[in-house]
């Protein structure tokens, strides 16, 4: 089945079975491997992309359900890798293994769109669906605050 997908402001045409999850279309058909496969069960959030601005699990989203809704992946979050979250993630040295971080950043980007100055509680509530096996959570909180233009809480946050 031939499909036109609007990804990162470009139109891509792929020929894939309609039930193929968006994740695998991105990774295997289009070679955009920034979006990660963690569980295929919607439980880890590593595959999170923005679909019409909403964070969705691309591993559970059949490509046929996407239609012409705009998709933003980690590769398209900013033109030069300089989204405030990307800069904060580097500056606060958030990644350990780094595997989940695309999903973390995409989820955080959606959070900041709706809640530009989140509290710790806002962050915990928005981000609890995205697993970090290395448990970089302490720095994820700090980096989101940093990106929101708020100094991170002192004393070990």
């Amino acid at each position: 089945m031939s499909l036109s997908l609007h990804i990162n402001k470009e139109v891509h045409t792929v020929d894939a079975a309609p039930e193929t999850p968006l994740l695998w279309v991105l990774r295997d058909y289009l070679g955009m491997v920034g979006t990660k496969f963690g569980c295929g069960q919607g439980a880890c959030g590593a595959c999170t992309v923005l679909l019409d601005g909403r964070p969705v699990r691309s591993c559970l989203t059949p490509v046929s359900a996407v239609g012409d809704q705009p998709i933003v992946t980690i590769e398209g979050l900013s033109l030069h890798g300089d989204h405030p979250l990307q800069k904060a993630w580097d500056a606060m040295d958030v990644p350990q293994c780094g595997y989940c971080q695309a999903g973390q950043i995409m989820t955080a980007a959606a959070l900041l769109e709706n809640t530009p100055h989140p509290t710790d509680e806002d962050i915990d509530s928005a981000m609890s669906g995205v697993l970090c096996r290395c448990a970089t959570y302490v720095r994820i909180r700090a980096a989101i605050h940093e990106a929101a233009g708020q100094p991170a809480a002192k004393g070990g946050k």
Partner: peptide, 15 residues
């Protein structure tokens, strides 16, 4: 900061 941070936060192939 880690040397691969830039590649990680922009989704470059690494793994």
């Amino acid at each position: 900061p880690g040397r691969d941070n830039g590649a990680i936060v922009t989704g470059k192939p690494l793994f």
